[in-house]
Structures are given as C-alpha cells and as structure tokens.
Design a protein around this nucleic acid. Structure first.
Lengths: 203, 203
DNA sequence: GTCTATAGGCAGATAGAC
DNA sequence: GTCTATCTGCCTATAGAC
C-alpha cells in the first residue's frame, strides 16, 4: 500500500490475527506473548517491537475488531432490503463468530473488564455504544415502517438485543452447540418482528 | 456442626468467600492464591492445605455456588404464588449478584471455559443445566395455567432466559449501571407474560 | 492448621547485536 | 525487524518446622 518492503510485511496484522483468536477463545488473561510468538514462529521480543506491551496490543485488537464490525454494519445497511432482514443479518454476524468457536471479542473483554487497562476499558464500552446506536436507528426505522414492534424505547430494545446475543454466545460455547445460539437469536428476533401482531411480514 | 475445634473454624469457607468474589470480578485467570491469602491475612501455603490446587478450589467454588442457587430456587418455589412472580424472583437473584458489582460465577467461568480443568468445565455446564430444568418446569406450569406465553418449546424459552440474563449482566457491568440489567430483564419477562395478549395479570 | 522457606516455571518487558 | 540473552517479578506448588 505504501511501498513497504515485502519482507515481514503484515507482521503486525498477523500478530493481531493470532492474538485476537487467543483472546476470543481464552480471554485476555488466558494468553501470553509466548503463545502468540510460538504460533507465529517468532520470538517474544519481536512482538514487543510491534506492540510495546499487552495494553497496546489489546487496544489495537479492539480497534481493529470495532472497525471491522462497523464495516459489517455498513454492508448490512447496503444489502438488506428491510429492517427484519437487517436484524437477522446482525444476529448472523454473531453466529459467524461463534461458528469459529470464538466468543465476541468485546463480550470476552467485558468479562475481563475489571482487569483491563483504562484505554481498553474505554474501547470496549465504545464498541457496545456503537452497536447500540446502529441498532437503535434500525429499530426506529422498523417502527416507522411497521415491520418491528417493541414496548418502551428503541434504545432499551437495542440494549436487549446486544445483551441477548452476547449472552447466547457466552452460554452456547461451553456446550459446543451453535444451535443453542441460533434458537435464542431466532426467538429474540421473533419477539421483535411479530410481537402482539399475528401474520407479520416474512423475512 | 460436627464438634470441630473453634480455632480456624470456617477457614475453608472464608477462603471460598474471598475466592468467589475475586473470580466473579476478575475471572478465574485474573486472581491468584496470593490475592486470597493477602485479603485473609494468611499465607499461600495455608490455602494449599484446604485446597491442594486451583482446580480443586475452583470445583469447590462452583459446587457451593450451584448449591446456593438451587436453594434459592426452592425458596422461590415456596414463596412465590404464581409463575410470573417466580420468573421475576429468578431475575431478581441475578440482579442481586450484579448489585454487588459481580458477574454470575458460572457466567464468568463460561467465558474462561477453554482454560478450565475438566472437572470445572463439567460443573459449569451442570449449573446451566440445572437452571434450565427449573425454568423449563416453571414455564410449563405457566403455560398450563395461562400466565405465560411463548412460541416453541419450554426448553428453548428457558435457555433464552438464561442467555439473556447472563448477557445483560455481562454488558451492564462495564457500564457500572444495574439499570441496564433491569431494563433488559423487565423486557424479557414482559415478552413472556404478555406476548400476543394485552392486559395480562400484574406481578 | 498455619507458618517459613524454597523450588521451578512462566509472565511481561528490555538491552543490544545483527 | 528479528534475534539472543537476560532481568525481575509473580505464579502454582511442595517440604518440613511449629
């Protein structure tokens, strides 16, 4: 992209790839620089060149994850015709993560929250906020066009969606059963698209 | 209870008390024997006398937690008049944990699942199973007496309840906002007690 | 039951050669 | 950019005195 040498190009990204998976599977306190270095066939010192400490590595992990998530939301906005389809696609993003036997990065870091450095804490909260804003806007659109129904504020409904999907991932993983997630997600969406009405539009 | 000497009586329980809180706040990989010993004013070696290793301590933590949870469910069965009240009380148990700024012990351990020794893994799954069985039975009773309504199996509805409450705790904690949990829990229960009906019984 | 002392290992991190 | 070598500290765990 910027004319860098090909030797070692993408080292920083490869480090993030491995570290991301390790955090999603084992948690932030469940992996080490030695784990990442071992998988990549490099030394720990090499990792410290790209990310001075675990805190900086953690920040980079969340920022890249949040960016990718935001891009996925833009894609959903562009490709999904109606609100129910957007919500189904949103749940599908989570399902894709779980299919790789991973927890949502920020869901995992929410569990580790009390042990995280301040910058990582702020980034985790930002992730949930961004998701909440997007969902809130989608739900408001759905209320206007009559495709979704919920009591109370769209904000609260958005937070319920995030909580339910994160919780369904959390609990499904010990069972090694993605179906357990799918069942919960489907029921959640059904409550939004059919609540107090029968014969709602099919997705 | 069994005529033990008073000296040191309850040491094992005190260890569990401190370790339990540390796990609920920091995760299983976020606390050490040194942390527990420090808070109790004893040495690490003393802890190893009661619990040979972290694995055994972890098992004891889950077993005691699951026993207390089961007792709480029995109390709910005894004291709550109807099914909606039972479900509200069930959510209230979670709310009580969150009020102490803790995550559900087994929700936290679900995040740490991949790093846990086999016996702890089995105990975590057992906890969720026991909760599922109780909820399923409560929901079936509610369906019979017409106080709750849900599509699909009571089993799936029970799993949705567990997932939602665990997820709501997980996400609410970084915000330090119990209201965020309450909102999600209230909406979850409303979907069960009022779905496709208006003017449902008040709790 | 609790202590002191210690073992052996792994953690995150740094200095400096190449 | 990656390496070797090393530091310091904390981790789980054990032996043995009291």
């Amino acid at each position: 992209m910027t004319g860098q040498t090909t030797t070692g190009a993408g080292s920083a990204a490869k480090i993030l790839d491995v570290a991301e998976r390790l955090v999603q599977v084992r948690g932030f306190n469940g992996f080490s620089y030695a784990d990442v270095a071992g998988e990549l066939g490099v030394t720990k010192a090499s990792l410290h060149y790209h990310y001075p400490g675990k805190a900086e590595l953690g920040e980079a992990l969340i920022n890249r994850y949040a960016t990718r998530f935001a891009e996925a939301l833009l894609t959903i906005d562009a490709e999904c015709a109606d609100v129910p389809a957007k919500l189904a696609a949103y749940a599908g993003v989570y399902a894709g993560v779980l299919r790789e036997q991973r927890m949502c990065l920020c869901g995992m870091l929410a569990a580790d929250y009390e042990t995280l450095p301040p910058a990582m804490r702020a980034a985790v909260v930002r992730f949930f906020d961004e998701n909440g804003v997007w969902l809130e806007q989608v739900l408001e659109q759905g209320t206007i066009d009559g495709t979704v129904h919920h009591e109370g504020s769209a904000r609260d409904a958005a937070q319920l969606i995030i909580s339910t999907l994160e919780g369904a991932m959390l609990v499904a993983r010990p069972y090694g059963d993605p179906e357990r997630f799918q069942s919960a997600a489907a029921r959640l969406l059904a409550n939004l698209t059919a609540a107090s009405r029968d014969g709602a539009a099919s997705a």
